[in-house]
Design a binder for these strands. Structure first.
Lengths: 230, 230, 230, 230
DNA sequence: TATGAATGAGGCTTCATTCAT
DNA sequence: AATGAATGAAGCCTCATTCAT
């Protein structure tokens, strides 16, 4: 299977580099697997140094083969980069927000569900790395940039709005702020995403940021009561 | 915007002698002025291509002098980059939020004032470029990264909280969401900042994003009435 | 002379593909062999122009490969230079004066043997080149300078003194000038060595310099009779 | 006066660089003096690093003026170098061996006089530096190389032979080794000169090298008695 | 497919020289 | 004469890519 399970946070493709295992096999592997290994390696290298400063040799060594070997699977550095972004975007899409269960009836329950979905999709190391690469190499990958905008951001914002309308339509007016500007529902996640892109995955502006996000949504959706503790 | 603007776009292709034109003078300039010109040029080049892919020669030409000439002012490409970030951070700090006038009494007036200050400071081309460089070259400039966190982000969040407490203390409870998690007040700006870093300065998730931001603050501060349309 | 000779003078100007000729092969070689070829080339180039004025490109071309290829074998120009000196010093040491045969019994026979050993070791093109490089780049290679002093000069002077003491101990007093100042036995060779370093290998202050040196030793060792003419 | 006194060992042009005085004057000087200052500076810089590695800027600063200023006095780096060598050779020639006094009658007295003259002329820092430059930059200065051979070496050897013939003609046979190969009389000096060129001025192969040299000459000139102590 | 030496274009940096001041 | 910023030609070194093995 090329892709990690879509529902958890463990989608991170960073396999142990010099781990306790045996590392990437040194010898002939099925092409699919080799390519995947190379992309894994490339992700880490590009993430650490950016496109221009990453050497094919670095990728090759981390992928467990030689420079020439990489060229048996990809035509150029550029091609590796593109393939990498495509795969990463596919991973994020994988998480296309499903239907919340019927138990998510109340405002708070729905808000929590939404926040959890957003965090799972966008606040994991792979997403942070992807964002960094997109920001850094914007000119190089207009296609991926567009996909990020449409499928990662806009689609999710619309989905959130649709859910609210669908589940809480009666309670919140049609002119609710979140319905008029759904992107606001994503802002705290984007804020944290940016934070992690700058200061490293794991860093957060505030340890209670998930609860804060939930509370924000609740208040904007008209639920006046104080939140349950995190 | 109260920041100096990069002087010109004129990319003198190669005039043998002194150019009487409008581009940066090809002739001897006071070091201060030359350095500034070089940094202006570097800002644009680095912003367009990133650190590694930018050639000193590009910077030089755009700055109106020759490759070698740059080295009379900076020791290395790295040094240019560092100086650039320092200057850019100084510009943003320049905008340290002042005291709002006494007319900013009501919730909405204060919210508008806050949003305007944040937008002025963070949603201008220079800030967007700075952010892109910081994200792309994180490892290279840990110092600047720290400054960005402390002085651009945290300090502003605290300032917002202090203002709210000071001006609206009676009205909003001490446990108001924005007082407990001031970074939330900045999230929409950060969202737009990230948006612009990815999709280009000028692009916004929603043309009414300023009004939306104001409204968000108002609602969180307990002002129930609907806003005037943008 | 029992030292390896620089392989060839062929300065392949630029054959697009593998050259079947006689120059150093343009194609993949065992690293040992390539390195050796590069050092051969470097020796000639450095000798002709000195360290600073020699271009890596010159060395590469003379070595039959491209500029970049050199860097697969040496880390830097400096490293080539160091390796070169080390190899050259090893060559000179190679010639560590062996035991003269039993036929070298008389004063003159021993003097001739000594002079021949010294000339063979120190008055060959490789030694002259080495000396020039050491003089010119003294600061750059303190290690090699020390080796030259210890192993090329001092050790040989001591060896000469030991031989004299051993073979002619009865005849020459213990206070013989050469036993008190063995370096004097090397002076004529050093003189010629310097001469060649300045005026080119092959040039000598006097065509009968070998005979003169022998005679000098004989006289200092107390052999009164005049030598046979050259 | 441009040249130091010709009879002593104090001909060394190394004036204090950052000495207790005022250093080279920063402002307008008579051209002669300025040129001389520049050559002084150049001598030290070239000696330390060789021709190619010495920057005009180094010379300028040590000479107490700016880069551009140097070009007011010399056309090029090459010209400085040539002028430098010419001046240095003139200094050595200055010492053209004069007539020894009448007190120098005996073999030993004459030998001592000869050795002292040779040492004074050739074993001083300026001569060592000159030699290093000549060895290192042989190709660059064929003219100076020739002068060194003719006027520093050959002429002195002939002068020594002439003196011996003149003063000790009766005592030593016409076929004396030193008369047939006068260069041998200079060998110990050349040896030490080379030693200093390699290991630094001041270093000697043997602290009694002057006495040893005298003794060598005495023995070759047929004086059998042991020398007086140094 | 895999290896890694070899290629060669390209970028950073240095520095002799020029020239406006 | 002097200054020092500016020029521009090199030179060192890197690294994407090729290719013989």
């Amino acid at each position: 299977m090329e892709k990690p399970e879509p529902t958890t946070d463990a989608r991170v493709p960073f396999r142990a580099v010099a781990g306790g295992g045996d590392g990437p096999s040194r010898r002939r592997l099925p092409p699919q697997e080799r390519s995947s290994q190379i992309l894994d390696a490339a992700l880490q290298e590009f993430a650490a140094r950016g496109f221009a400063a990453t050497r094919i040799d670095d990728i090759a060594r981390r992928g467990g083969l030689s420079k020439g070997g990489v060229y048996a699977h990809f035509d150029s550095k550029e091609a590796i980069f593109q393939a990498l972004l495509e795969r990463a975007l596919r991973w994020i899409d994988w998480d296309e927000m499903p239907q919340p269960g019927p138990s998510r009836a109340g405002t708070r329950a729905l808000a929590e569900w939404i926040v959890d979905r957003l965090h799972a999709a966008l606040l994991n190391p792979a997403a942070v790395v992807l964002l960094r690469l997109l920001v850094a190499e914007r000119e190089r990958v207009p296609r991926s940039i567009d996909q990020w905008r449409d499928r990662v951001t806009r689609m999710r914002a619309q989905r959130v709005a649709a859910l609210i309308r669908e589940r809480l339509g009666a309670q919140v007016g049609i002119d609710n702020l979140l319905l008029r500007h759904p992107w606001l529902a994503l802002s705290p996640v984007m804020h944290v995403l940016l934070w992690q892109a700058l200061f490293g995955p794991g860093s957060v502006p505030d340890s209670g940021f998930r609860a804060a996000h939930v509370e924000l949504l609740c208040q904007l959706l008209g639920e006046g009561s104080a939140p349950a503790p995190v």
